[in-house]
Amino acid sequence: MTNPESMALRRGIAGTLLFDGELASRGFELNAMCFSFNDTANRAAFLADEDAYCRRYNLTPEQRDAVARRDVLAMIEAGGNVYYLAKLAGIFGLNVQDLGALQTGMSVAEFKQYLLDQGEAAGCAPASNDVGVAA
């Protein structure tokens, strides 16, 4: 068995939910929908009729509401996993830094600066202020 200290970390890291069986069960429908977005025709179908597409995947009310509000933290709370949610985010034109900003309450510029500041603190070769190019 996973030791008790490690099990406690599944819900014990601030601002973090480790994606275990409980969350994977809760989020299966949402993640299945996101997995379908590997197919460009499915992305188009979602954009053409979001409600119908979400019904086809039997999203729970919590999942449907989180998707409708583009609320990433609520999607994660509803069992969404970021590897799959990233495919949904792509449909909305959001990259992982946009996702970071949405989840932390920072502006996108502030979130990118937060990352650059960590590089500077670590003594990495200075990056430019041209933060707009990062995907």
Partner: peptide, 13 residues
């Protein structure tokens, strides 16, 4: 790195 959650952007050099 961390992509998800309120701790997104976490790095530990």
């Amino acid at each position: 790195h961390q992509l998800d959650g309120a701790r997104a952007g976490f790095i530990n050099a």
